[in-house]
Design a protein around this nucleic acid. Structure first.
Lengths: 205, 205
DNA sequence: TAGATTGTTAATCGATTAACAATC
DNA sequence: TAGATTGTTAATCGATTAACAATC
């Protein structure tokens, strides 16, 4: 648990959490590595190995108590708190992200929205946030102590904005711009580019 | 080239393609595995190894001709054709996806849109597509020979719809619903769940 | 007790990297 | 020729899986 856990293992924990939430919704109280594995298309050994990086959460013979394991995984992933988020870019995608109820449901709250279109600056989103100009970005992020940003802007301005965000104190960046960002290694970056996903699949078609 | 190429290698090819497009935009004609690697945060050896699965695309001493390598990668990924796409779900996200110009730019054309909201069925999108009821799904997909679908619906109905899509002839599915789908192994599935990405990053915060 | 499932070890499998001959 | 960079081999590194003692 002390020596660093592989990133690929961390990447699976939210998937486990998602599966546990569904099992819980179904009224289940206990599950096993085998059942989880079957649902997720993963071997049971891998699930047990992954969890063993962090402790012993199951019982021989019976498996895992769902609510207990959920709690542990949330603790590990630092999800026992709400996370404020800054959204950069209020185009169609930004609009959809602000509306998406999956974020607040999981403790992620978009707290500030930025766009450089003069037509949008000063207007308010459906849920009452005022769209700010990027020039206010650094101050707002510092003041609110925001650590996570979502970048939903065109590729051309993404790198520059990302650098500004990092300077302002952002430590984790969800990047929707179709470009590989160059940032200090201690800044977390996750990329979402639907075209990249589609282009992978066409290989097999 | 004949014995199957690891999926992880295929996953990087679109990233290479994206980087090459940027270099081309910058007016460059030639690049090297070292330069590409630096831009992408990947070792040059890995890039050369990845490409070697498919042939020899470079020249010792000089590197890779950008337009030639782009052509080869597009060929490998079957991107030398347009791909029609069916979009299931016309909520905020579906709306953003229909508007997104990154798709047609790369040869992906949303050709049919489905939503089960009676308020939406029969109405037309901004670019003139008529929103169809899911009951028409199978026939439309078969008729148009669509092989790729984007699933942008709530988690609760995703599995069922995915099965319908596969029965109708869909072979590749880009899944925005926050759930792991169970589908035949010969169907390609890629998942996009922003919450999963955020939950990975909070581990490090 | 009998059956089930964990946590963990060791073996296997696969991916990445270092190094270099070939050659432009 | 001298310098640069490829494609490829072998070594290293890391991740997955099989197997099983421990134990609920």
């Amino acid at each position: 648990m002390q020596e660093s856990v592989p990133g690929i293992v961390i990447g699976r924990l939210p998937i486990y959490l998602r599966a546990l939430a569904i099992l819980e919704q179904e009224g289940r109280e206990v599950t096993s590595s085998q059942e989880l594995g079957k649902r997720l298309g993963i071997s049971s050994a891998q699930i047990r190995k992954d969890l063993s990086h962090f402790g012993e959460f199951g019982k021989q013979g019976t498996g895992y108590r769902i609510s207990f394991l959920q709690g542990k995984l949330k603790e590990i992933l630092h999800l026992n708190q709400n996370w404020p988020i800054a959204l950069i870019g209020f185009g169609d995608l930004g609009h959809a992200l602000v509306q998406y109820n999956g974020f607040p449901q999981k403790g992620f709250y978009i707290q500030a929205v930025f766009d450089n279109d003069p037509e949008k600056v000063g207007k308010s989103t459906i849920n009452g946030m005022i769209i700010q100009h990027p020039s206010e970005l650094a101050e707002t992020i510092r003041r609110e102590g925001v650590k996570i940003a979502i970048l939903a802007v065109p590729a051309g301005v993404a790198q520059k904005l990302a650098e500004t965000l990092v300077k302002a104190g952002i430590r984790a960046l969800l990047n929707y711009a179709p470009i590989t960002l160059s940032l200090p290694p201690d800044v977390q970056v996750q990329n979402i580019d639907p075209v990249v996903h589609l282009q992978q699949m066409t290989y097999y078609l």
